[in-house]
Amino acid sequence: MKAKEIIGRGEEVHGRLYVKVEKQEVRELIKTLKENKFQHFVMLSCIDWIDDGEFELVYHLWSYEYREHVMISTRIKREGEEMESLHDLFPQIETYEREIKEMYGVNFIGNERLTPFFLEGWPHMPPMRKDFDSKKFIKDVFESIPPVEDEDEGI
């Protein structure tokens, strides 16, 4: 794989290069790839490994020249650890970081735009965390709202 030659590490998984790194190394790696024709930042995703107490952040990159997909994965602690914002490398990272902040509560230092995104007026814990009890939430919020009864005005 061309990507492996460029960065000299990682393993091939299902035709993609999967690179596990520390969070300090992510910036340098993405920068190197960007300079070597990996010009498409596909997405940034987050996985909640609740048993390990960690969040996994995966940065996906794609090259049109080599037709290769690279996944750069890093793990941070669920509580009390923050990630550096990389939106100066690819501007679209800003929006992905904004979404992950809302859905998982991961803070990205340097991103000025971590404002509410999809959820308006959300007062609870971030809903995509594994310890968010969805069924209990439904029971407390939506099921506790009473139906509007009116015997005169039948439907």
Partner: peptide, 22 residues
Amino acid sequence: EKYRKNYEKYKKNQEMAFKFGK
């Protein structure tokens, strides 16, 4: 007609949903 008559009740329910129960 039901909505007009029970406007207060509907508004209260809507408000509860908008604030996610709080």
